[in-house]
């Protein structure tokens, strides 16, 4: 029998992390699509219907657990890799590297941690409310699934709006590298297609980051 390897190789770790990342990126698109329904101008009716569908569908329930697993795996492996990388160079350079590199890739751990902090804030605002772990903010509604009302209330607050928008910008930075990097890690590099993937990566990052930003902006300025 083969021995179970409890210390996965760097490549395996990166591949798992990339796969989790790809899953998270798909989720971001779904989540964004749902959120944008708030902008229908129907006081959140379409959006709420979609939320009800999502809440009652058992497949989505399972999806939710997988999603959490994805988040946790992505974060834990990311941290472990970062620690290992840190120890690979115990004596640092006096002059830090000035050569041409993929800029955002150097700050994945930083943008990642910012996103993690945002995630905690975001959870206290919405997800934990749903789970009844946290009171509904401002007691604006009695339905802990009425996210439309919650969003409306929250983004009247300038500070929260700003925090969300800044976080989305960092999310964009993270994704700008993440998207194309996942292809590289999964071994999908081809001289003909890689430039296209890199362009797509930036487009994806901009669309996601701007798409999410529209909601707080909409509620703060135009509602």
């Amino acid at each position: 029998m083969r021995k179970l390897n409890l210390r996965p190789s760097t490549i395996s770790s990166k591949v798992v992390m990339a796969l989790a990342g790809v899953f998270l990126m798909l989720f971001l698109v779904v989540h964004l699509f749902l959120n944008l329904l708030m902008l229908m101008g129907d006081e959140g009716e379409t959006f709420s219907n979609a939320v009800v569908f999502m809440t009652e569908n058992p497949a989505v329930k399972i999806f939710e657990y997988v999603l959490f697993a994805g988040f946790i795996i992505h974060i834990i492996i990311g941290l472990l890799i970062e620690i290992k990388n840190y120890f690979a160079r115990p004596v640092k350079y006096a002059v830090s590297n000035t050569s041409k590199t993929s800029f955002f890739s150097k700050y994945m751990i930083h943008t990642g941690l910012i996103i993690l902090i945002f995630l905690i804030i975001h959870f206290t605002h919405f997800f934990f409310v749903k789970l009844n772990l946290v009171d509904i903010p401002g007691d604006i509604t009695t339905d802990n699934h009425d996210f439309y009302a919650m969003a409306k209330y929250l983004f009247k607050n300038g500070i929260y709006t700003l925090i969300y928008i800044i976080s989305f910008v960092f999310l964009g930075f993270h994704l700008n590298h993440a998207f194309q990097s996942a292809f590289q890690t999964l071994g999908l590099n081809h001289p003909r297609y890689t430039p296209f993937i890199k362009a797509l990566s930036s487009i994806y990052a901009i669309v996601v980051s701007m798409g999410y930003s529209i909601i707080p902006i909409y509620f703060y300025f135009f509602y």
């Binding site: 190789s9 890799i81 290992k84 160079r89 590199t101 890739s105 994945m108 194309q180 990097s181 890690t185």
Partner: peptide
């Protein structure tokens, strides 16, 4: 070769392309 590279303690790839 990958196992040896890991065992020796080299870091992993962040696709920074430096």
């Amino acid at each position: 070769m990958v196992a040896k590279m890991d065992e020796l303690g080299f870091g992993s790839c962040s696709n920074t392309y430096a």
